[in-house]
Design a protein around this nucleic acid. Structure first.
Lengths: 335, 335
DNA sequence: GTGAAAGCGCTAACAA
DNA sequence: TTGTTAGCGCTTTCAC
């Protein structure tokens, strides 16, 4: 047949197994297993010998096979809502570092903003990893409960009953935004909402609303918009026609998209309109004009999540990390 | 003891296995296995029955256990040099879509620019996935050969003997850059080099050099620099003191970093200095000024890579994708 | 301290 | 068409 297996073509030699090492070393497989995984349960001599042989044979333990009896793979999965949102960079790096320090390999899976994909990944990876970090999960709480397989799950920027979580303080971030804006003299604010399924969206909107009310400012909600650059034009149009003098976007991606559209329309920012975002992503510092936004300690969050995941956190553990408004050039007094 | 296993705490019921389904359905495990994986090798009646029971018991096949005898996990790994480089976004999306269409789950692993991490991931994931896509691998060719485990491996923006690959046409991209710049009147160009281990770096530099020579322009190489925003200041300093009127950066990350530094120093771009990058990443369109850069069809590349990986590509298959210079505002006639 | 043997959950011959 | 039976490579009792 024309079609043949690549493996066959390259005549790849069967991987070397514990058996091979055992045979070569003249001991039982169980001894090799111990020498390699439980060094102190075997004599120093044997241990050395086995290690030498293993090295010579270039033995590599088969993760999958090891996982079957032990139930552990040494891998942790980080599911991100959208890998193309730079917001997750810090989180990924932080989680990775911490997981690595604990001897785990972190793998990432992109949910592309889709609940279906998210639940699919959750199910398919369930037997392949020792735990999950769900970043900004869009899954309804019922699904979250139902889909949680056998593995521990921790949540980032999402809270749900029975799940440990780490969230950045949207409420306080929103307060800082409102104070900054009203301090500048703005009285009519607009909120450019994110996806309804985004937990943070509700939190931000409610906090924004509460603080606006407290300071006597008016705020209207527009959207929902997809939290992407691409929805910038639609959000800009809505914001512009709302009569607001300052726009608060659900996240930086949307905010930058708005900025781009405003520039196209020659709307001066911040002279004619102020714009604020959330997350302080890659790009917020060099877009035009540089974006005022709510920064959060994403790397710390990543590390904390892994700690919760590996540390047998109480199911209800909830960590709230402080946020800080980074004022750049997209906000100023109303024209 | 205070410390106890989370699994134990939550008293998670043992996952339901094929055995459970078989017992409940009153058939043999092999029948259940077939009914679920080889539907046509079992009678319609049995198939229905087994499916019903499986659904009722909420049976989820254990990927790991399935992988042991079959040797296949249904997962593909995409190793990226640096997950914080938006350059990989398109690649990830393209690869993911194509893999998904073929029934595979794509997992990502971040190598953080480190060869050590890259080889570590390669080894640890070897038994867990059915194949690898290595994006911009920094591994020396000898290591690539040595570390290739049992799984097929395809390369992006890297070529090596015996590995199928997909690369974007750096040579032609470089030609376009040089022609654009010399067409604008530049005679003294500067190349801000990337990591020596980056295969693309050598390609770009040589092509730039060749085309500069062909057009009678002078080009000097500076660096190497780390291909990040953070090395922008160092690269800007080198570029500025080189006397070049146009700078070509190894990639957009570095180019944007340079742009930021030039703005800080109040160097007018492009009036005093032109800047070009490679990749056309997220941000290249909205940095200040918007960056002229070499765009490449990253999503197409992602799809092609998966096709090569799954399609039993000949070990030597090499695909070269066209690039196109996107001219924005960071290039202009020399002052 | 070491070996023999029983699985982990599943697939794939081989029989029936 | 279905059941029986070996394993896949490893860990882990349990004897010795």
């Amino acid at each position: 047949m024309a079609h043949s297996d690549r493996a066959a073509e390259t005549a790849r030699p069967r991987a070397v197994t514990l058996q091979d090492v055992a045979r070569e070393a003249g001991v039982a497989v169980s001894t090799v297993s111990r020498a390699l995984s439980n060094p102190d349960r075997v004599s120093a001599r044997t241990r050395e010998h086995v290690h030498t042989i293993a090295r010579r044979l270039a033995y590599r333990p088969n993760l999958i096979a090891r996982a079957l009896p032990s139930g552990r793979t040494g891998m942790l999965a980080l599911l991100v809502t959208d890998i193309t949102n730079p917001h997750h960079f810090g989180l990924i790096r932080g989680a990775e570092a911490q997981a690595r320090a604990a001897g785990y390999t972190t793998i990432l899976a992109d949910c592309q903003g889709s609940q279906e994909l998210e639940s699919d990944h959750l199910q398919r990876l369930d037997s392949a990893v020792d735990g999950f970090v769900l970043a900004s999960s869009r899954l309804a709480e019922a699904n979250l409960q139902r889909l949680r397989g056998g593995r521990p799950v921790v949540l980032f920027n999402r809270e749900a009953d029975g799940f440990p979580s780490v969230v950045t303080d949207s409420v306080d971030g929103s307060r800082q935004v409102v104070e900054h804006l009203t301090g500048l003299g703005h009285r009519r604010l607009g909120y450019l909402a994110g996806p309804v399924a985004a937990w943070s969206d509700g939190r931000r909107w409610r906090a924004l609303q509460a603080h606006a009310a407290a300071t006597g400012a008016e705020i209207t909600r527009m959207g929902p918009f997809s939290p992407t650059l691409a929805d910038g034009p639609a959000a800009a149009a809505a914001g512009l026609s709302s009569g607001a003098t300052a726009l608060v976007a659900f996240n930086d991606l949307l905010a930058i998209g708005v900025l781009q559209q405003l520039e196209r329309q020659r709307v001066q920012v911040p002279q004619q309109l102020s714009v604020v975002g959330f997350d302080d992503i890659f790009g917020a510092g060099f877009c035009h004009p540089p974006l005022s936004t709510v920064s959060s300690p994403a790397e710390d969050a990543g590390r904390a999540l892994i700690d919760l995941l590996l540390g047998s956190a109480a199911p209800g553990a909830r960590l709230v990390l402080p946020t800080r408004l980074t004022v750049r050039d997209s906000t100023g007094p109303p024209g």
